[in-house]
Amino acid sequence: MKLSVVDTERCVGCQSCMFACARHHGEAGLSGTCIGVGSIGGMERGFKVIVCRACVDSPCVKICPTDALKPRKGGGVRFNTTKCIGCGYCQDACPIGCVFWNDETNKPIICAHCGYCAKFCPHGVLTLEKKKKRKEAGHATR
């Protein structure tokens, strides 16, 4: 299963997905979210939706000095919080900004591709794709 951005043109910028992600991590507010919605230079131009695209051979895994991040079957990564020393290399390594940071725990928040956020997207911007249908290219973040 993989979370996928279907069409950002439908995004109205309500950020319900961001709040959903935090709730799924057991938190209210926004510290615990690993999905980001922001305008692409003024709201009149529309929005970008930044979310882990479960890449193969992920840069964040390769740079992690403590093996807190490990490849996940079918792409993406698994995060072991007890091994993490909060160095932040993973955040710097991801070129699309998908490693979010929880300032309160000083650790990254890594998307588990659970699809909870997609349930709270009112306009079908997000979807949880079955593994077989995965598209390699496309508009994972924009």
């Binding site: 309500c14 950020q15 306009h123």
Partner: peptide, 12 residues
Amino acid sequence: GRRLACSHCPVA
């Protein structure tokens, strides 16, 4: 040309 929402409002 576009519909927008306030933060934390799915209505837009």
